[in-house]
Design a binder for these strands. Structure first.
Lengths: 64, 64
DNA sequence: TATAAATGCAATATATATATTGCATTTTGA
DNA sequence: TCAAAATGCAATATATATATTGCATTTATA
């Protein structure tokens, strides 16, 4: 399913997918697909996203 | 670095690497290598491990 | 001790995360 | 409105997560 928490956290920092991707060092598509819930990022990428957005793993990637 | 929190959580449930791996549906080596910090699991695998061990992502995979 | 179970290690094979490019569509702001 | 920016989508290529097998080493238990 879509990762709306990620999308919201990115909006909170006023970053485009491209800007976030550049900051982390991945492609824009990777960020876009994660937000769309169309794939399965690695732990290291999740951690890099968390640090860029000042969130924790549970904040952005835990699903209840 | 090694993931000692994972190793401890597994010990707390008295599961071998093999038993945990079978419960999750991955190979024993995958669990072993994650504990040794020798690679980078996917988010879905991290979530499966968390559920099997009754922990959260931050419990097992957050590094300060 | 012995013996079995658990773990580490290494090599090869396969599935899939991620990159790259290009274009279509949607959203935003002048 | 309209133009630019942001996002979605699709195809192909590459890097790497994971499986598989077999064996060595360590750890637990009788």
């Amino acid at each position: 399913m879509k990762n709306l928490k990620l999308k919201a956290a990115r909006a909170e920092k006023n970053l485009s997918q491209q800007e976030l991707a550049e900051q982390i060092g991945v492609s824009r598509q990777t960020i876009g697909l994660i937000e769309l819930g169309k794939y399965n990022p690695t732990l290291q990428l999740c951690l890099a996203i968390c640090k860029a957005l000042s969130k924790t793993l549970d904040d952005l990637f835990w699903e209840d």
